[in-house]
């Protein structure tokens, strides 16, 4: 693995569409559940241990070379909200485009042919990590970091939150990100032998319900 490749893939400026999504933060802000840095931290912590863990497990499993189609079905079963399934596939397709140009690979080409409308983003992320010469842990780190930094950046725009405070939130969550990555990778390694059912399935009911509401708004800053 190369650390520099990890930074390229984890960079918020990697052109894969993430900037237009708030990871549920916009809905939580509108509902009054995030009003400042402490609410943002609590939101990000909950997201990290639920949707974040699930995504990291899928990404790690894909990076280990598990069948992307099986992982994609497992991702569907772990995403009850159709709005979020749609978002995950759109972002997966956007990431696929960026990754294929950045790290040309037969596996990415095959995945693109198999899922012309997009596979779940964490699955694509794992295959992209392989193409970049990265491992399961790297894929899981990219996934959890994006899952926390996305809502933090979005909240800076939504609440005009002090960007230093938002970055402080992300930094304070770093030890828990390490923990979640450890759990995700451990589960992914077991899944290689025991199948996708042993991958994490932690749920965040308000993220799912909030996403359905958000999808119906006429006026919003973020796509999700």
């Amino acid at each position: 693995m190369t650390r520099a490749a990890l930074l390229v893939l984890a960079d918020g400026r990697f052109p894969a569409g993430g900037h237009a999504h708030s990871g549920g933060a916009e809905a939580a802000v509108k509902a009054g559940r995030i009003t400042g840095a402490s609410g943002l931290e609590s939101f990000c912590r909950g997201r990290l241990h639920t949707a974040g863990l699930v995504s990291a497990g899928l990404a790690a499993a894909a990076a280990l070379g598990m069948d992307p189609a099986e992982l994609d079905a497992a991702a569907d079963a772990r995403t009850p909200s159709p709005a979020l399934r749609g978002v995950a596939r759109r972002l997966g397709r956007q990431l696929m485009r960026a990754a294929r140009v950045t790290w040309p690979s037969a596996e990415l080409d095959a995945l693109a042919r198999q899922f012309p409308k997009g596979a779940h983003q964490p699955v694509v992320l794992g295959v992209a990590a392989r193409a970049a010469g990265l491992g399961a842990e790297d894929a899981a780190y990219c996934s959890v970091y994006e899952g926390v930094s996305g809502p933090a950046t979005a909240t800076v725009r939504l609440l005009s939150l002090d960007p230093f405070d938002a970055t402080g939130v992300v930094a304070r969550l770093a030890p828990e990100m390490d923990l979640v990555v450890g759990r995700a990778v451990e589960a992914a390694r077991r899944a290689v032998h025991d199948g996708v059912d042993v991958l994490p399935a932690a749920s965040a009911p308000l993220l799912e319900i909030g996403a359905e509401g958000h999808a119906g708004w006429a006026v919003r800053l973020f796509a999700s």
Partner: peptide
Amino acid sequence: PLYDQEVACGPGAPGGWDGPAVLA
């Protein structure tokens, strides 16, 4: 797999379970 979800809550559950992303 059609549906696979796990709820974890209460003292000692992973952080944020009672926060704005999960149960609020």
